[in-house]
Amino acid sequence: MNGILRFVGFALVVALTVALIATLAGCGSDPGERAATPLPKLDTFVVAADTATGGRAWDGTVEAVREAVLSAQTAGRVTAVDADVNDRVAAGQILLRLTVVEQQAGVDAARAQLRAAEASAVEAERQFQRFSALAKDNYVSRAQLDQIRSARDAANAARDAARAQLSSAGQNADYTTVRAPYAGIVSARRVEPGETVNPGQPLLTVYAPDDLRIEVRVPQSAAESIRAQPGARVLFDDGIAVDAREVVVYPAADPASHSVPVRVLLPRMAGAIAPGTTAKVVFPIGGDARALRVPTASVLRRGELTAVYVVKDGRVLLRQLRLGASAGGTVEVLAGLRAGDVVARDPEAAVQAIVLQRDAAGAGHG
């Protein structure tokens, strides 16, 4: 249904444009007569080169420097989830609990094995001390003493292994309590109480909101200029602009794209900027004077058609565009416009102006 509506909208735009051209063409052979019908008042702007940024800009996405996907490290059933999406949590705070029955049974068994191993080690040590005393008076042979020494060493090794087993069982029991690795915000929750989880299954995602960055890829020619002037200004779509805390240019280019990654560290900001937010990163290097930008709201999008309405010689013309990256409520124009072109701010108002001008021309020649 949506595809049909888009097709009908596109057909309407084309039909209106064709009708306008046909009407103006039928008003007479004199160009002055065709332009005699005035164009209704229309809000427009003049396309100019994008010099406000004072450098070259690339679009990027905000990501958290510290973001942890907390996964299950032991099997069990979820008994409680104490944190939800958007909750702020403290370092070490309990976020989720699993059943601990099987893990606790493992701890108890390991503790019993340790007690048995310790008793065996104590008895083996006593036996060795007795044989050592007898060996001084040659009541036992050297071979017997060596055999008792080996038995003692084996008992001590079994005791150490039992201690390690108890430590492992205790750690496995601790895995049933999931804690926050650092202070942050819960950005994802993937389980509910009652679910059975297995080792490696994602449970929650936590990120630190005060440590954010953006990574962009720039051409090799621009990378050297950025390395010489390691600074940047970050522009967000809501109008917020901040200076980068640090700019790190990678030492090598990507062999596939031949671009160089540049990491931009953001400062602490009062507003909440969430990972995944798009932003424009402007580096203070020589920009492209031919770069043009127009307001996103002025662009008409109908299926495969991307265009604006250009006002020229008292007429409104549909001009198809090839667009680039968008940021801050504007979009880069790669082809279709030149500096100095006059563009309607509202495509719908431009269509209405076309209809009014056509009706006025028809009434004047009726």
Rank of each mutant, 00 (worst) to 15 (best):
Ser187Glu: 08
Ser132Arg: 13
Ala157Asn: 06
Ala36Leu: 14
Met1Asn: 04
Pro275Glu: 07
Val206Glu: 06
Ile148Thr: 11
Gly314Ile: 05
Leu98Met: 06
Ala279His: 01
Leu42Pro: 00
Gln171Phe: 10
Leu305Met: 11
Arg111Met: 03
Ser259Pro: 07
Leu70Asp: 09
Ser225Arg: 13
Phe7Trp: 07
Ser326Met: 11
Met1Tyr: 10
Arg213Glu: 02
Ala119Trp: 05
Leu96Phe: 04
Ile4Ser: 12
Ala157Asp: 07
Gln144Phe: 12
Asp238Met: 05
Ser187Ala: 09
Arg293Val: 10
Gln201Val: 07
Val81Phe: 09
Arg301Cys: 07
Phe7Lys: 03
Arg190Tyr: 03
Gly32Gln: 13
Glu192Gln: 08
Val311Phe: 11
Thr61Ser: 05
Leu235Tyr: 15
Val65Thr: 04
Gln171Tyr: 13
Val262Asp: 02
Val122Gln: 03
Val178Lys: 01
Arg179Ser: 08
Gly9Gln: 02
Val311Tyr: 11
Ile285Val: 10
Gln104Leu: 03
Ala52Met: 12
Arg217Ser: 15
Asp254Pro: 02
Leu317Ser: 10
Ile185Gln: 12
Ala11Gly: 01
Glu246Gly: 05
Ser221His: 14
Ala335Cys: 03
Asp210Ala: 15
Glu102Gly: 02
Val247Ser: 00
Val342Asp: 12
Leu70Ser: 06
Ala169Pro: 00
Gly324Tyr: 05
Val264Ser: 08
Leu300Glu: 06
Gly55Tyr: 13
Pro40Gly: 07
Ala183Phe: 03
Val46Glu: 14
Asp50Trp: 09
Glu63Tyr: 06
Asp288Ile: 10
Ala48Thr: 15
Ala143Pro: 03
Val101Tyr: 13
Gly26Lys: 08
Ala135Cys: 06
Gly271Leu: 10
Ala83Glu: 06
Ala241Met: 10
Leu42Cys: 09
Asn86Lys: 05
Val85Asn: 02
Thr277Met: 00
Ser132Met: 13
Ala116Leu: 12
Ala19Ser: 04
Ala353Glu: 14
Val122His: 04
Val264Phe: 10
Ser167Tyr: 01
Thr196Trp: 04
Arg189Pro: 04
